[in-house]
């Protein structure tokens, strides 16, 4: 197990470096960071001075070497927009995003498992068809639209919750619900399909013949068996949430997390902040992947980690 984690961490390091290097190549070789970051009205002298200031006058291999050695100390340069180290901005915003994603995905897990299990009890029955229809609806609603609708209904019309912003638990409700909708739908569909599969397996008949109650069979026997594929899907959803959902949801609700910061960094041509965000998100994705594998092994002893 420790061997496995070390090996995966090493592989993950390569992946993160690869992703970051790609950003380096795309921005320096194919793009021009100076015209990206300076306003159109900047003079040639100003451009040259700025290039020298951030080291762009050096040959590419030298730049790349400096880029790599700086990364080791988590030095991505100063954010042009915030005038402080980019990584500092990232670490300041990261907990907000973690709170949003944790609340959204946590809610999705709590809702989808019972919903999917109830639907699976009578495939094709009324409850099942209702759940499947709602699931398709949930998958079909884009988050930017859902977020705006939620603001209009619950914040503007009913005035139950704040329209946007950050600070109290009430501020978390609408963004988390909006972010949770797609994962709820996808998790529920998956739990339903996997539960139907499991409930038809011979071990369930054994449990019934032992006189076990249906709730116990669902809770103890089948749930454990769908947990490994469920973990894999929730890892995927967590990654999608970090690198996609949060960009939309945080923008709609002005939630000061990494997603909103990424949008702002791109709008302001803040190259160094962008690089820091990409690096941290890539690292998080690698860590989630390893955590999912280790958790799967602890549930299913037949899984070989290698």
């Amino acid at each position: 197990m420790p061997d496995f984690i070390l090996r995966r961490l090493f592989q993950g390091l390569l992946v993160v470096l690869g992703v970051t290097a790609t950003v380096f190549v795309v921005t320096r070789v194919f793009g021009d960071p100076v015209s990206l970051m300076l306003p159109l009205s900047a003079t040639d002298a100003q451009r040259a001075a700025f290039a020298a200031q951030i080291g762009l006058d050096q040959p590419l291999p030298v730049q790349f070497w400096r880029f790599l050695t700086d990364i080791v100390t988590l030095d991505f340069g100063d954010s042009l927009w915030q005038r402080r180290p980019a990584i500092e901005v990232v670490f300041e915003r990261l907990p907000n995003t973690a709170l949003l994603v944790g609340a959204g995905l946590g809610l999705a897990v709590l809702v989808s498992i019972p919903l999917g299990a109830i639907a699976a009890l009578r495939p094709g029955g009324l409850v099942d068809r209702l759940v499947v229809s709602l699931g398709l609806l949930g998958l079909a609603m884009p988050q930017f639209w859902l977020g705006l609708m939620a603001i209009m209904v619950f914040a503007v019309q009913l005035k139950w919750l704040p329209t946007s912003g950050f600070g109290t638990a009430a501020h978390l409700v609408l963004p988390a619900l909006t972010l949770a909708m797609t994962p709820i739908a996808r998790f529920t569909m998956m739990v339903r399909a996997a539960m139907i599969d499991e409930l038809n397996k011979p071990y369930v008949q054994t449990a019934r013949a032992k006189g076990m109650s249906l709730p116990r069979i669902l809770r103890v026997h089948t749930l454990r068996n769908i947990l490994v594929p469920f973990l894999a899907l929730s890892g995927w959803e967590a990654i999608t949430a970090l690198s996609g959902y949060t960009v939309v949801v945080e923008t709609v609700f002005a939630w000061p997390g990494l997603g909103l910061t990424a949008v702002q960094a791109i709008q302001r041509g803040d190259l160094f902040l962008m690089q820091a965000i990409v690096f941290v998100i890539a690292a998080l994705i690698v860590i989630i992947g390893i955590a999912i594998d280790v958790a799967a092994k602890s549930i299913d002893p037949r899984i070989e980690l290698n």
Binding site: Y203, Q205, T206, A209, H221, N225
Partner: peptide
């Protein structure tokens, strides 16, 4: 069922829950 009247099935390879220990499955009943 499970106490006075019990049953043994055809396929021992799939009739036990693969993710529960033998002990847990016995102790349960």
């Amino acid at each position: 069922w499970g106490k006075e009247v019990t049953m043994v099935f055809q396929s021992p390879m799939t009739s036990l829950n693969p993710l529960m220990t033998i002990g847990a499955q016995l102790e349960e009943v």
